[in-house]
């Protein structure tokens, strides 16, 4: 009976759940891709790819951890429109568009903060921690090298031999 029951399910419960989960994830990806619905005309595919790259690059000021491409916030929509206008109507270069947004929204819109008086520590902390780790490692290795081998007396050797034999 149990055998028949099992046979009616060709895949295990775990595999079944995995399939469902994958479908859900796929659904999520599709919704994500559709979340920005503004349609802009581009002269060619290169321009369109440039635009898509730019809106992927900037962070939405309202939503902290989403880029302009992935955000539904009204401000993200406005900024996508601005990027399009600067790129297509005004003919700005990528760097000019970056500077334009940075002048208005600060370093925050760039995921890649420049080295400055406010940001030096986020750049230098990892280097400092790396140096610290190397110093600690060096000290530990040095200490291990300095350790003299232990000298056993004849009595100790005898005890050791009996202990090993007992095993």
């Amino acid at each position: 009976m149990a055998n028949v029951y099992r046979k009616s399910y060709p895949i295990s419960a775990a595999a079944f759940l995995t399939c469902w989960f994958s479908l859900l994830m796929l659904g999520g990806v599709i919704t994500h891709a559709e979340s920005q619905i503004d349609i802009y005309p581009f002269a060619d595919e290169v321009e369109e790819r440039r635009y898509k790259g730019l809106i992927e690059e900037f962070r939405c000021p309202k939503c902290l951890n989403t880029n302009l491409a992935g955000s539904d916030a009204p401000i993200a929509k406005d900024l996508r429109r601005t990027v399009y206008r600067l790129q297509v109507d005004e003919g700005y270069s990528d760097q000019q568009i970056r500077d334009y947004l940075r002048e208005r929204y600060g370093d925050f819109v760039l995921y890649d903060p420049p080295f400055s008086a406010q940001t030096w520590y986020i750049w230098l902390t990892p280097i400092g921690l790396g140096i610290l780790a190397l110093a600690i490692l060096g000290r530990l290795l040095g200490r291990a090298r300095k350790q003299a081998p232990v000298q056993l007396s004849d009595a100790d050797r005898g005890r050791l031999a009996t202990l090993l034999e007992e095993k």
Binding site: P61, K62, P74, I75, D78, L79, T82, R104, Y105, G106
Partner: peptide, 12 residues
């Protein structure tokens, strides 16, 4: 249309 807002760096 929020264009002055963008000039001012307004996000809300």
């Amino acid at each position: 249309d929020g264009s002055l807002g963008i000039e001012l760096g307004v996000y809300g």
